[in-house]
């Protein structure tokens, strides 16, 4: 017969831990949940690879037909595509299925995130680890590494460092924009369409040199939805094109800062909108 532990309930046994530690604990839980279905593992990852592979094959066919697009060769376009897809892969691997926020709110599941001593976003992100996302990341890395060895770039510590920071920043840009859009779900707005639209813009326009589009679209993709900072500007810098762009060169060189800045903005927007959370009637 087990008896009550001595001093039980005298004072709470828990304490707050840093956000990254709770993130890792929750990530571990999400991983283990997914591994309960072991047979699925490879099929799911493969489906992610196949999906992204088809997307890339389409660009391949187009470029192979015309030789170059807007003065960019096949390997250079693959480089843009590789940065974009790797950045996207990082974002989705870290954030799980942030796309389900509307449902999570409507079904009242969000309540339980708020009664735990951990960030609500970290809990939402680790609600489920979605395996096809690993396929996105894997495809992105393969395309990026293959293209990086093909393009006429001068690889040294500085350029490789710039590339790594640019990829991280690219993932932050997409993540920050998705979080900002998702925040409005707290005002009982349906954010699914706007987030879907953003996802479409990223995957449809993100793999091309932005300069092939008319100036109006270029400006939108730079200053409204800052997609140009994800892969195009870094690629232009690394292939020696940053001098002749439609924006000052320093802006392109600063692209690794765009992600962290947008993340700070997204954090403020998320917090300000979370106050409007109404919880669903029980």
């Amino acid at each position: 017969m087990t008896t009550e532990p001595r001093d039980f309930g005298r004072e709470p046994a828990g304490r707050l831990i840093p956000w990254w530690r709770s993130y890792l604990v929750l990530l571990g839980a999400a991983w283990r949940s997914q591994f309960q279905y072991r047979a699925n593992l490879f099929i799911m990852i493969l489906s992610g690879v196949a999906w992204q592979g088809v997307g890339f094959a389409f660009i391949w066919v187009v470029v192979a037909k015309f030789g170059t697009i807007g003065g960019w060769s096949l390997s250079e376009i693959a480089f843009i595509y590789g940065i974009r897809l790797t950045a996207h892969g990082l974002f989705v691997v870290v954030s799980g299925r942030i796309f389900v926020l509307d449902t999570v709110i409507q079904e009242g599941e969000f309540d339980r995130y708020l009664v735990r001593p951990a960030g609500a976003l970290a809990q939402l992100w680790n609600r489920q680890f979605y395996l096809p996302h690993l396929g996105d990341l894997l495809s992105g890395l393969v395309i990026l590494i293959a293209a990086a060895t093909e393009i006429p770039a001068d690889w040294n510590v500085l350029t490789v460092g710039f590339l790594l920071l640019a990829v991280l920043s690219g993932g932050m840009i997409e993540g920050a924009l998705q979080v900002i859009a998702a925040s409005f779900a707290f005002r009982t707005m349906n954010t699914r369409q706007i987030r879907g639209m953003m996802d479409d813009i990223f995957s449809n326009f993100g793999g091309y040199p932005i300069t092939i589009f008319p100036i109006a679209i270029r400006l939108i993709l730079t200053f409204v939805i800052p997609l140009a900072f994800v892969a195009f500007f870094p690629s232009a810098v690394l292939t020696g094109r940053s001098g002749g762009l439609y924006v000052p060169e320093w802006l392109a060189l600063m692209s690794p800062l765009a992600g962290p800045l947008l993340v700070l903005l997204a954090r403020e927007v998320w917090r300000s909108q979370l106050k409007h959370y109404k919880s669903s009637g029980s």
């Binding site: 709470p12 828990g14 707050l16 949940s33 309960q36 339980r112």
Partner: peptide, 23 residues
């Protein structure tokens, strides 16, 4: 101070589980 409050309280909603469903 939502997170600090969370350390002092336990919450059980009869209809909604807070456990990890697949584990």
């Amino acid at each position: 101070e939502r997170q600090r409050n969370a350390l002092n309280i336990g919450v059980v909603f009869g209809q909604k589980s807070q456990l990890w469903w697949d584990l």
